[in-house]
Write a protein that binds this DNA or RNA. Structure first.
Length: 219
DNA sequence: TTTTAGATCGTCT
DNA sequence: GACGATCTAAAAT
């Protein structure tokens, strides 16, 4: 079942946790459905957050979706080659980065897309299922999420990219961990536990063993 | 297994 | 002109 607007009026940190276990669905132009469970997210809080594109209240053409209505996709290019996919939250300038997804439908197609997006010509490379979407740019490759089509889409509003509730209630523990790849923002903000992932899930991009020590172990 | 270098260009200063 | 909310392949340990 698709997520409704009233499910979704969440602050950045609330949303980062809320999205874990939800399904991300991408419908391609030919009608192919690609689907996966969100297993890892990161909060970018906005004007106070030194690691956020909207730090200090910066507003540019690129980060405009961070200021748009809740559920707006913010897709940007990084390192000249890759994309990252975020979902805007309630507060102006804040968004949740989707860092990892556990693929559940359309795996063959994801494999093709992932291979196609790679610059290397090793066309016979076989990805493990766990390598398709275990990183913010990898999942953009595998789900064909890029700026031209997906940026500024509202996930509550369209038939290209949306979110669904799981069919049954999932039970899992959430690990709050430090974010990744933002050291240049300074130690204070780099250390904050604004990354969240499903404890024990093998599709996560990177575990934080220190952070996991504080999680109660499953019975 | 962990570390390092290089790719590559849109965006912002 | 400098720099990434990254990833891969190759080198080092």
């Amino acid at each position: 079942m698709k997520l409704e607007r009233e499910d979704f009026d969440l602050t950045c940190i609330e949303m980062a946790k809320f999205l874990l276990g939800k399904f991300l669905v991408r419908k391609l132009e030919d009608g192919t459905i690609l689907k996966g469970k969100i297993v890892e997210t990161e909060s970018y809080l906005g004007r106070l957050d030194k690691a956020s594109h909207s730090y200090g209240g910066r507003k540019t053409p690129r980060n405009e979706p961070m200021y748009m209505s809740v559920g707006t996709a913010y897709v940007y290019m990084t390192y000249g080659i890759y994309h990252c996919f975020n979902i805007s939250s309630k507060e102006p300038g804040a968004a949740v980065l989707i860092r990892a997804v556990e693929p559940t439908e359309g795996l063959n197609h994801m494999h093709k897309l992932r291979l196609k997006a790679m610059k290397s010509r090793n066309l016979s490379k076989i990805f493990k299922d766990s390598e398709l979407c275990n990183g913010p740019s990898k999942l953009c490759m595998s789900l064909n999420i890029h700026k031209e089509i997906c940026n500024k889409l509202n996930l509550l509003d369209n038939d290209i990219l949306w979110l669904e509730n799981p069919s049954e209630n999932l039970d899992f523990d959430i690990v709050p961990a430090k974010r990744i790849g933002i050291d240049s923002a300074g130690e204070e903000w780099a250390m904050k536990p604004l990354r969240f992932y499903i404890f024990g899930n093998t599709f996560v991009s990177k575990r934080d063993l220190e952070a996991e020590k504080s999680i109660k172990l499953p019975k």
